[in-house]
Design a protein around this nucleic acid. Structure first.
Lengths: 240, 240
DNA sequence: CTATATCACTTGTCTAGACATCTTGTCAAT
DNA sequence: ATTGACAAGATGTCTAGACAAGTGATATAG
């Protein structure tokens, strides 16, 4: 059961998406929200702050909360959203080919040192997948999942959605991730699976995902065809 | 004069950076923070939430707030931070060559349509700059600044720091930005200024920056040498 | 007509307290 | 030794109210 401020957040978000509150117009004032939903002001403010953080509104002191341009869930990377969730949201025809599946492999730590990983080479399940979009191979995902957290990962989970398996089947609480995007020359493996010419570049997204108890458990290297790669970000200014 | 929660946020952040609170240890509990700083609990919670959002800590219910791995201010893109601020923070030798400066140019809107810009081609000041790092050209920045907001932009501001000019001289309040990262073939202009071979790729970051009153005013196209490009991101999971 | 003061309404911040829920350790009953 | 009840302490959520400060319209004095 979600809490009040989350419910109000969802309600306002929906109404923005459905243009009940249109771009450039103001939401009801905080006092009006209190009457509308029967809540205290701080509860409404929590919902508004979350909307501002997510890029839906801009709060303007003395005036109100104005709806601004926002584009969430752009393909293929944005926040922590699983590939399957994105594909569903965007109604894209997607396929998922597992071409590597090994257990009891040591984690290739050197690949993630730049993300602040200082672990020993703990045993992981290593998964290699190619993502097809409209029948075309666009992304290679290499996942390494700690066996200490997920001991017996079924291959079927990799063929469907790892996140659904982690969250719904195992009840794991995925909390946050650190990501790094670089551009690197395509390897022979990239060329073979992504159908690339020699000398091509790929966009590489390396990420470490952690649970709610702050233990990192999933390490991913995602290699994208350069011409299909696109990353969108919304950021607020922090005073230096 | 900053407010209490911001002061406590800064104090805790400093103490994490200086390892008064070390990685993997817990901060004082919320009730202890009340006593330590002489504040109410919600005020301390606001500071903690901000730290969690920024990737400094992970809050764990029933236990406390644990310090996690964080790397802010990584080069060259992360949040809305100006180039000069980054260079200063990272103590990098940097140079800044303005090779284009025009006023009353129409904004090239088609370049920013994917970021949700639906403006007419309003008059802007167009600036082209090359960023040298350790004497090597790594980035081309093309800025378009609305003349309706900044009528008389001095060329000297472009040679130093645009952000310092906007915020300190003009008193503009920069609030948020939307960014998009793609990979594109290098143009002849890229090749000439970044010293690239034919057929090279560049990482392109296009962004629209808005003020606190939600008016977009700065449009930037930033073109990076592929081998030097690196983007880091911290994101929290939102339940779908 | 102009400048200024005022007022209503807005968001920003903070307080003190309440109750819920989760974690962990302790202690007693089995 | 294992289990279960309990309590202490932690975070999560919400309330009702207070004061500060920015915005904009209106009324007023010059």
């Amino acid at each position: 059961m979600p809490n009040k401020s989350a419910l109000i957040y969802e309600d306002l978000k929906q109404k923005i998406d459905r243009e009940v509150y249109k771009l450039g117009t103001y939401l009801p004032s905080e006092h009006q929200l209190c009457d509308l939903y029967g809540i205290s002001r701080e509860t409404g403010r929590k919902a508004l702050s979350a909307l501002a953080e997510a890029g839906y509104i801009q709060k303007i002191r003395g005036k109100g909360s104005i709806v601004i341009e926002h584009r969430q869930y752009e393909f293929p990377v944005s926040g922590i959203v699983s590939y399957q969730e994105l594909a569903q949201k965007l109604k894209i025809k997607t396929e998922n080919i597992v071409y590597g599946f090994e257990t009891k492999v040591p984690l290739p730590v050197q690949m993630f040192t730049s993300l602040g990983v200082e672990m020993t080479a703990a045993p992981v399940t290593a998964i290699k997948r190619v993502r097809l979009i409209d029948g075309e191979p666009d992304i290679i995902d290499k996942d390494y999942i700690l066996q200490a957290v997920v001991p017996d990962l079924p291959r079927a989970a990799a063929e469907k959605s790892l996140y659904a398996y982690f969250e719904q089947t195992l009840g794991l609480q995925i909390a946050y991730a650190t990501k790094e995007i670089t551009m690197e020359p395509a390897t022979a493996e990239d060329q073979a699976h992504l159908d690339l010419p020699v000398g091509a570049y790929v966009a590489v997204v390396r990420s470490v995902t952690s649970l709610a108890d702050a233990t990192p458990f999933q390490f991913t290297e995602s290699r994208h065809r350069a011409d299909k790669f696109r990353f969108r970000d919304f950021a607020r200014r922090v005073q230096p």
